[in-house]
Design a protein around this nucleic acid. Structure first.
Lengths: 202, 202
DNA sequence: AAAGATAGTAATTAATTACTATCTTTATCG
DNA sequence: CGATAAAGATAGTAATTAATTACTATCTTT
């Protein structure tokens, strides 16, 4: 379903490239995605890709930036619509999970980037993403405490950690089983257990 | 500290190769580990590696097999030494975490393998590993229930899932932060929260 | 409609890398 | 001690792939 339109304006072509990489990552190992494959999927020649990106790394960087922006947006939207802090946590969780199910290539790209030793630009972007993500979780957890929904002596950092770990665990298992749909089945059950661990004991 | 001994018997050379790959994976992206790099680290020429493995995939396969065997062994040992099911879960958790800290390259290799689309041999080995791992968790959880240590209506599959997810989350965060030591700091806090979610409410 | 800017093509290049064929050294055992 | 098989060295090959470049097609502005 790629629009076979040539001669796109540069910014649109860059957007299509990012989209294409994410789609390709759902089908194959991200490190096997060649610039030739990206071009082919867009209906362009390999060289044309370099009209819009100085090098291959810049493409990946653009992908990660898109992901960070989009994920935070979706998660914020979900949280805002929820009636209480605990409900917001659950809504965030499900929004995140659904985002991944819609774009199964994304966690694979991220995991691939995390493999690189030392500091890389994509890693730094991912760091700011998780940092902001954790901030949001911390905020919700504190509001849940004052709200009496959550346990007053809850370790908010451990809780935020577990929250993100749950999602990563779901993703890993779905990758291992070659079955993305599995996530939707397991997510609510795992979250129920999480809720049990954080809510106020009364 | 690689033993610069040439002319090792074939089985020893294979063992040293596995060890070398794991060490290299701690330093660089597993997909960037070339046969030349493996050979160099062992003090051999690149061609010599192929005296002991038919191809590169076979090397990776041997690595994954070693990991699966070793991890299950360590985790079993830790669980056996524990005085109760809940204590065994915690001992297993810490044994697993320590194993990863000692061999930081291992999760990177595993994650790298999970990237591949479809069924691969390393993926199948990893699948049996997590299957056996989950069996052990299920068994401990059931024993914890009869023991009244754990909540009687605990969803054992969700709990096992969360257990593994915690470890994966810890690993991901340490990769992101380029700081393995971080795991040791966070692990006990996260486990405390997990314990809160699974233990009997009384 | 001319001129300039933008986007894409096609072919090439240099580097990398898994793998192989052939020759040499080393260990071991009768 | 000497034959022989195992282990390693040397010197390749073929395939892949990111990047470059000279050229062409298409769009936009004046």
């Amino acid at each position: 379903m790629t629009h076979q339109v040539k001669h796109l304006p540069a910014n649109e072509r860059r957007a299509v490239t990012v989209e294409t990489v994410i789609k390709l990552a759902a089908e194959r190992n991200p490190s096997d995605i060649t610039t030739a494959a990206i071009a082919e999927r867009m209906g362009l020649t390999q060289g044309a890709v370099f009209r819009h990106f100085p090098n291959k790394d810049a493409i990946l960087q653009a992908v990660i930036e898109w992901v960070a922006e989009r994920l935070l947006f979706l998660v914020d939207k979900a949280a805002r619509a929820a009636p209480s802090p605990l409900a917001a946590l659950e809504a965030m969780f499900m929004a995140h999970v659904n985002f991944i199910i819609e774009h199964p290539g994304i966690p694979r790209i991220l995991f691939g980037e995390l493999q690189h030793a030392g500091e890389t630009i994509p890693k730094r972007i991912a760091q700011t993403l998780t940092h902001r993500y954790r901030e949001r979780l911390h905020r919700l957890i504190e509001r849940g405490k004052t709200n009496k929904e959550l346990d007053a002596n809850l370790d908010r950092e451990a809780a935020a950690f577990l929250f993100i770990g749950m999602i990563q665990g779901l993703v890993m298992q779905s990758l291992l089983a070659n079955d993305v749909g599995r996530i939707l089945h397991d997510a609510p059950r795992v979250f129920a257990l999480f809720r049990q661990g954080i809510r106020s004991t009364q």
